[in-house]
Design a protein around this nucleic acid. Structure first.
Lengths: 197, 197, 197, 197
DNA sequence: AATGAATGAGGCTTCATTCAT
DNA sequence: CATGAATGAAGCCTCATTCAT
């Protein structure tokens, strides 16, 4: 599809030259379409950036959601592993591209837009966790999912943005699992303690 | 001084608008000088960025060095605390500014330039550590200083670049101390083990 | 055509203001196109000058060539007259313009470019002369054409560049014919002498 | 003298870079004075050009005048030779410089200024000729001197401006003498004819 | 008198966007 | 729908000139 070709061209050039040096002519040339065609699909330059970022993030969310949906019931730990694997694996698999997209996102989205996006991922985590066979009924689903996602997001973005050379995905997944499971443990204790007191 | 006013204006605009959207006319206006004056002090736009970043980093180095120099003798742990306090305190005290400068630096300096800068900080750490009262004579000064600085740098930049809202400086300093002192402990053990064997 | 309009505007302004004072905005305004349009047709300011000069010279060559081509056979003297008439007539007909173009050409073309251009005119003369009914078979075509063209060029450019007020074209043509025919006479004598010896 | 140093610097740069690319900073640097100093001696950039050209031409006139003044009486032919020798010798001795100055003069002087300058040379010739021992009393001094100078000027400028490589001064002087003496001959005949009729 | 820091007009060029085909 | 020629705002930079020291 043409819109997809345009977005792919944009991402390619974003990596090669940085956002401010990606011109509409470049995009059109790489996408293999006419200059005017860009304006048939997008109202302007910034829009290509915004739509591309959002579209890629939707794709990321879809992959993570898919990993969280399973026919057979799973434990919470298995679920954490599956989600972490999907998220971290996808990001580090195309590290440079995702790095560029996240940096760009910081630049173009308002904090409002950003919150909305964040919430989507949190809901996704929430639903996945809730489907786990051993999800503690006493957990505040919204709050726990938010915290869990924050942890995953922090570690993954750190791996992506800070380290010069890309770290090993397996290691990062392990770190994520460790941190999230540790968090769940503490949450359980809090709940239990509150109850038994 | 005029050069300083220009650099200050540049940093201000860098924070407000991002590098690519900082125009020479903007800088001149904010610095309160004529457009041509910019070109009396800097050969061009990129140069303002480069000199500003380097100058700020030299200032940072000076503050850290100052913190490492003391009339009374100090233990290694005290020295680590002093250096970490100075570095982290300075960075997080103006977090947004330093974030912007580090991001910009990634974009404009060659890896060569970057290495040179890194080395300066390592030497600074090396000399400070060597002046500690309990610096282990058996340590390889160069290597140990390099590793110690890398740890500090990693944790500080993480705090600066990754986290959305600025973390508490005291907490970050604690983390840094913990990590560096732990590293020293392991180094000592290695050396001791090697000797007793 | 737009490219032609730009070149015409350039020549007009070249006459009025001199090369260095012809700005892109002036050209655009006089050509009746937008500023950006200039850069659709030419990569930059110098290119407009270069292309314009070359294009006019090609036009000149075309007119001279046309004058040299005739259905009915002609004597060498008639051919010299026809070529001289075409060349001198064209140059002096728009003396100021050609003066400016030649001065500009001196400034922008490398000697290499200049030689290439010169050669084209020489070839043109060579072919025209060779088609004359009484062209001496014993003439070295290349060399004789080169010398003949050099004579014509010298006299024509003198008339164009040196004299303040434009001289009479008829007079200049006469001078040219006289010089070239004289040259042919001497060449014939040399060849004849060589043969009879 | 400072003014002279400035003019010399200007001429040097004029030869190297062409008028439009000679900047005030360049001139100041080459002249070894401060930028502001230029404005103490000349009201502006164009003035440096104008004064320099005029000054050099005055120098030229002085040399020619000197050649025309002699203690011992001389024939008209000797006078022609002396003047031609001085004029052509000076011009071709520094051909590149004079070429640049004459081209520049064309660009900056109004036709009024030019006429004034021309007249000075004509008067100079007039007085020199009048001092010749065999100056024909019946000659109209003004008119004859004007024509004679025009001839000299035309041939000398031709030699200077048109020819790529500098021609031999001796040859040019010979040409000049021949042309001027021929002119005098015809003038004498006219006068004589008018008288005998 | 000499200096050069400061100035801003003006030149070249790029590029997002429009619009007629 | 698709195209790309045309446009002009806006950016970078140079340089003649001024003026306080």
């Amino acid at each position: 599809m043409t819109s997809r070709a345009i977005q792919d061209a944009f991402v390619l050039l974003l990596l090669e030259r940085g956002y401010e040096k990606v011109s509409m002519r470049h995009i059109a040339a790489v996408a293999g379409v006419g200059l005017g065609t860009l304006y048939q699909y997008f109202p302007g330059r910034d829009s290509i950036a915004a739509v591309t970022v959002r579209s890629r993030l939707r794709g990321l969310a879809a992959r993570v959601e898919e990993a969280g949906v399973a026919s057979s019931p799973r434990t919470l730990e298995q679920m954490v592993h599956a989600l972490a694997q999907a998220l971290v694996g996808t990001l580090l698999g195309q590290a440079a591209e995702w790095r560029a997209l996240f940096v760009l996102e910081r630049r173009i989205s308002s904090s409002e837009t950003y919150r909305e996006l964040y919430r989507q991922f949190v809901h996704l985590f929430r639903d996945a966790f809730a489907s786990a066979s051993d999800w503690p009924a006493e957990f505040d689903r919204e709050r726990v999912a938010l915290n869990a996602f924050s942890i995953v997001d922090a570690i993954a973005k750190h791996a992506l943005l800070v380290q010069e050379s890309c770290p090993d995905a397996g290691q990062v997944v392990e770190d994520v699992e460790c941190a999230v499971n540790g968090y769940f443990l503490l949450e359980r204790r809090k709940c239990g303690g509150a109850r038994t007191r």
